[in-house]
Simulated scan of single mutants.
Amino acid sequence: MPDDRIAAALTHWGPRFTAQGVDPNDVARTIAGLERWADWLDAWCALGDLHAGLAREAEARGRRLTAGHAWVRAALAYHFAKFVWLVDLARHDAAEDRAIAALAAAHRCLDPTAERLEIPFDGAHLAATLRRPPGAARPPLVLVVPGLDSTKEEFFWWEQVFLDRGLATLSVDGPGQGETGRRLPLRHDWEAVVAAVLDALADRRDLDLARVGAAGVSLGGYYVPRAAAFEPRIRALAAIGGPLDFGALWDDLPPLTREGFAHHARARDPEEARARAARFDLGPVLGRIRQPFLVVCGQQDRLIPWRHAEEVARRAPRGELVLYPEGNHVCNNIPYKYRPLVADWLSEQLRG
């Protein structure tokens, strides 16, 4: 019988694994017989090693497409090995390094124009991936923003939905996220993050920075509207599965989520973590968001109640709610519905 943490991870995030590109058969094999949370990381890293081996073999034979897809699968496995696993931080960070390297190898094979950016911020830097659609001289740009435990290494196929519609993407690990989180803790005032990103891109001639959109998932669905309330360079935004008031949810969040927030916020104890979570409240700023704002949520979301999305859309001056009755957290059980919707909507807003 798996322990409670394994069961919680599968209950809350199982559909996310496959939505992001993990083969469901790999999920089943990886968790089969897994009973101790302490063994989670090793099981998923073994899956990553399997796909990394397939990638190297394909590259040696000159099969770049096959290799690239295998590298994406490896990156996802290494990422999900450590995404909410904080048992041993040295091993956590080692798995993260492997995810970063695997995604870089995937880009080398599948999208060699992809760029790694390191954007100066608060005495450190924000790590980001910039991708541009082929054949577009100055495409609009979509900022793709992770949540509490997602990172840019998770977003290859999510980015592709925007790229297929002629939109460039910049997936960024902000403070407390992914590799940036090793240097900078979580912060609620994401307008500072977005301002630094857009300032760093200002001199580029291969992006149309008069047409910038943003899409955030889960806690990224807080970060994006918070930033848009103060940053007019965001022309349209979408939040998927985001909270109105994260602090108000604190007592009902899964222990893995509370522990993850405390770690990424560098809180000294649970009470400090609770106090910091209370800062993540869109209520005081929703009236400032004048841009078109798409709010997407699933009515079966067990992490962020759908009423939060309903209230965000109601209180934002140009809010538009799309509620999927069957959708779970971030609607990852129906990615074929929400992803095209968000990409089409942002494309229409940025080109309208």
Rank of each mutant, 00 (worst) to 15 (best):
E272V: 07
G287C: 09
L282K: 09
E272K: 15
V296S: 01
Q291W: 04
H308W: 13
Q299N: 07
F293R: 00
A273E: 05
R266K: 13
D281T: 06
H308I: 01
E311V: 08
C297A: 14
H308G: 04
C297F: 12
H263M: 10
A277Y: 11
H263Y: 14
C297R: 14
R288W: 12
L303R: 12
P292G: 02
A278C: 09
Q300N: 07
R276I: 10
L286H: 08
I289H: 04
H264D: 04
A265R: 10
R274Q: 04
F293K: 00
E271V: 04
P292T: 02
H263S: 10
A278D: 02
R268W: 09
R302N: 02
H264A: 08
R279G: 00
E272T: 10
V285D: 02
V312F: 11
P270W: 15
P305L: 11
A309D: 02
P292S: 05
Q291M: 01
R266H: 07
P270Y: 15
P284K: 14
R288N: 11
P270Q: 10
A262T: 06
H263R: 14
Q291K: 13
Q291G: 01
V312L: 04
G298K: 15
E310G: 14
Q299L: 12
R288A: 10
A275S: 11
F280E: 00
Q291I: 00
A267N: 09
H308S: 11
R266P: 08
D269A: 03
W306A: 14
A313E: 00
R307E: 02
Q291R: 09
I289G: 04
A313N: 03
R302C: 07
A262D: 02
L303Q: 09
H308M: 07
P270D: 03
E272H: 09
G298A: 01
V312Y: 08
R276P: 04
E311S: 09
P270G: 13
A277F: 10
A278V: 12
V312D: 01
F280D: 00
W306F: 15
R290K: 14
P305T: 07
V295C: 04
E310I: 06
R288D: 05
A309G: 15
D301Q: 07
R274G: 00
E310H: 13
P284F: 13
R274W: 08
E311H: 12
I304E: 01
F280A: 02
Q300D: 01
R307W: 10
Q300K: 15
G283D: 07
R279Y: 08
I304S: 03
A262N: 01
Q299C: 11
D301C: 07
D281P: 08
H264M: 05
R268Y: 05
V296L: 11
I304M: 09
V285F: 02
A273W: 12
R274D: 01
R274H: 14
H263K: 14
A277I: 07
F293H: 00
A309S: 15
E310R: 15
L294W: 01
A275C: 07
I289Q: 00
R290E: 04
R290H: 12
Q300V: 08
E311Q: 11
W306E: 00
D269L: 03
A265G: 10
A275P: 06
R290P: 01
